[in-house]
Design a binder for these strands. Sequence first.
DNA 1: AAACACCTAGTACAATCGCACTATCTGGTC
DNA 2: GACCAGATAGTGCGATTGTACTAGGTGTTT
Lengths: 152, 152
Amino acid sequence: MFTTGNLEASLPTLRQRFSRASIIVVSMIDDMETAKRVMSAGADGFICKSLPPHEIMAAVAAVRDGDMVLQLAASGLPIGETDAPLRGLTQRQIDVLRLLARGLSNKEIGLRLDISPFTVRIHVSAVLKALSVTTRAGAAAKAIALGLDQSP
Amino acid sequence: MFTTGNLEASLPTLRQRFSRASIIVVSMIDDMETAKRVMSAGADGFICKSLPPHEIMAAVAAVRDGDMVLQLAASGLPIGETDAPLRGLTQRQIDVLRLLARGLSNKEIGLRLDISPFTVRIHVSAVLKALSVTTRAGAAAKAIALGLDQSP
DNA sequence: AAACACCTAGTACAATCGCACTATCTGGTC
DNA sequence: GACCAGATAGTGCGATTGTACTAGGTGTTT
């Protein structure tokens, strides 16, 4: 992500040095001509920063997934809503996540919740998938960010 | 990379949804207070866009490598390292911990810091011992509780 | 020079993790 | 009844983790 101005000159170099990165320009400028020039300079996306956060998020996600995005406030077409990550979690999964975020192993969580460690693994896998992470450290970080570190 | 303004509100969500990404804010605003607020919101770096392109490039590269960068045009001081609220940890251990707390594996951390995964394990073990935990999920939780991913 | 702290890199090993399956039971819905 | 979501429990397997060693390099301190 980037902004225009002097930085426009840096775009080709950026594109070259970080050829595998996604570059999305978020600018206060809401002008199609500027947008196209920026895209030509090597950006994968251009979005006006006056747009609501969830649209910016959607644009970032889209670019990360390989899409090219060019979205101005004047011609703003909606993309999608960002859902709260906790919405998709069941109560049991939250129970597991809370203990996971304290550093407990599957076996320890199982003892605490009085279920088999195998079952804990099922819940942990679901939690990782729901939070879009692949490790429990990442899940713990998100759990803390969501305020799940409080004692039950 | 990002810009301030409305986007500041998007940063926590961005940090959450793209927990493994590096976020560097490039802003026309050249103010320490703003910079610190942005860093607290989840950015890995803040740099004034009036700075010359090569400095911006260097900042981007540094952030990609795991450093935290806070660089204003006015106070030209090059880099504001994360001053350790984590006593007993070396700078390298903090580097590792910060990446660990985002869910990166030892291999990924090694690639990011350009060191062997074996060396990463050494640092991780030291971190776990220093934080009195036995798992990286617990370390991630403590790291966040200690404000590792924030700025004082 | 010697001691110390730190970063680096490797091997070895047990334990755990994460994923992909199958399977049963319950409760709610169409 | 059929269907589905959720919780439970298990096996199998490759990858990862955490610990315990050895070992070389750098830089600082005494």
